[in-house]
């Protein structure tokens, strides 16, 4: 393996990340290491701490313990440097009430030194004909794709996608996967959360399953299957996440 020869750079690195709300622990001693150029999936039930993890890494929430590095830097301290090269799609993305797609794209693109061509990205994600529309008039799936476009506008080295394909139909999901695969081929590191195991299986090199803020599995999809003795990732996930359905 070339791993021993080439030093692997970590796009995201957390050590002992801990966070609690009003005495309730939401993240406990989380250690993550996402290698550059890979796709990492953070899984877990609603409320397991996925979004909190992302926010602690990005510095929009303050962790009580531990450290988090994004492209080797503290995102809270070096905010303006880090976010030149990091794109983020939050779960609840919001926008100015009357803003149009083109305006939202222009306004976001102008913040970066070398932004991607937003028209091309919109075309690629199938909303190229909607750029003159008001964002609020888009369907849920179109809006979701728009927010992925916004996250890719910085021409990022690393992108965070929180529940990236929620609200998308089957075809749109496939399209998004394909684009993400292509971008990964160009060297993009992707940190995603998802509830769809087919998506995770198709995209992720490594996954971490959270249960009540604790990592209960960390490894590849294949390892998850073999460790749990399940054939399908969904079954393995449910076993780890303690959500075993009653047969």
């Amino acid at each position: 393996m070339s791993e021993t020869i080439k030093k692997i750079e970590e796009a995201v690195l957390t050590k002992g990340l801990t966070k609690s709300y009003q005495g309730r622990t939401v993240l406990k001693d989380l250690n993550l290491s996402v290698k550059a150029g890979t796709v990492f999936g953070l899984l877990g039930a609603n409320g397991a701490g996925k979004s909190t993890t992302i926010e602690c890494i990005l510095g929009t929430k303050q962790a009580e313990g531990g450290t988090a590095l994004v492209l080797g830097r503290d995102a809270k301290k070096d905010r303006r440097t880090v976010f030149q090269k990091v794109g983020v799609q939050f779960q609840e993305g919001d926008y100015q009430p009357e803003i149009r797609v083109s305006e939202l794209c222009e306004e976001t693109a102008c913040l970066y030194e070398r932004p991607a061509d937003w028209r091309k990205l919109c075309e690629r994600f199938g909303i190229g004909d909607k750029t003159g529309h008001a964002v609020k008039s888009l369907s849920g799936g179109e809006r979701q794709r728009l927010f992925i476009v916004l996250a890719l506008l910085p021409n990022p080295k690393l992108v965070f996608l929180d529940e990236l394909t929620t609200g998308l139909d089957a075809r749109a999901r496939r399209t998004v996967w394909k684009i993400l695969e292509d971008l990964k081929g160009e060297g993009l590191t992707i940190f995603l959360t998802s509830h769809f195991m087919d998506e995770v299986e198709a995209l992720c090199d490594e996954i971490c399953i959270l249960r009540k803020g604790e990592a209960v599995f960390y490894g590849t999809v294949e390892q998850a299957k073999s460790q749990s003795g399940c054939e399908r990732l969904e079954d393995a996930y449910l076993k780890f996440a303690d959500e075993e359905v009653v047969a």
């Binding site: 976010f83 926008y95 913040l111």
Partner: peptide
């Protein structure tokens, strides 16, 4: 939360 979105930009 528009400012929150701006926060994760430069």
């Amino acid at each position: 939360k528009i400012l929150k979105r701006f926060r994760v930009t430069p």
